[in-house]
Amino acid sequence: MSRRGTRPSRPAGRRPGGARPADACPCGRPEPYDACCGRFHTGAAAAPTAEALMRSRYGAFVRGDVPYLLRTWHPRTRPARLDLDPGMRWTGLEILGTTDGSAFHSTGTVTFRASFRGGSLHERSRFERVDGVWVYVDGEFLDP
Rank of each mutant, 00 (worst) to 15 (best):
M1L: 09
P8C: 06
R10L: 12
R10C: 10
A12S: 09
A12L: 02
A12N: 02
A12Y: 01
R14L: 13
P16I: 00
G17H: 02
G18R: 03
G18D: 03
A19V: 06
R20W: 12
P21I: 11
A22K: 09
A22Q: 13
D23C: 09
P26D: 05
P26M: 09
E31R: 14
E31T: 10
P32D: 14
Y33F: 15
D34H: 10
A35K: 13
C36K: 00
C36H: 01
G38Q: 02
G38K: 03
R39T: 11
H41Y: 05
A44L: 08
A44W: 09
A46R: 06
P48A: 13
A50H: 01
A52S: 07
A52T: 05
L53A: 02
S56W: 01
R57H: 03
G59C: 13
A60K: 04
G64K: 12
G64V: 05
V66K: 03
V66Y: 08
L70N: 06
P75D: 12
P75K: 09
R76K: 14
P79G: 06
R81M: 11
L84Q: 08
D85S: 10
D85I: 02
G87C: 13
M88D: 15
M88R: 15
W90D: 01
T91Y: 15
I95N: 07
I95C: 07
L96P: 04
G97R: 03
T98K: 07
D100W: 02
A103V: 11
H105E: 14
T109M: 08
R113P: 00
R113A: 06
A114H: 00
F116D: 01
F116G: 01
F116C: 06
G119R: 03
L121G: 05
E123F: 06
R124M: 10
R124G: 00
S125L: 00
F127N: 00
V130N: 06
W134N: 04
V137L: 13
V137C: 10
V137A: 13
G139Y: 03
L142P: 08
L142E: 08
L142W: 07
D143C: 04
D143T: 12
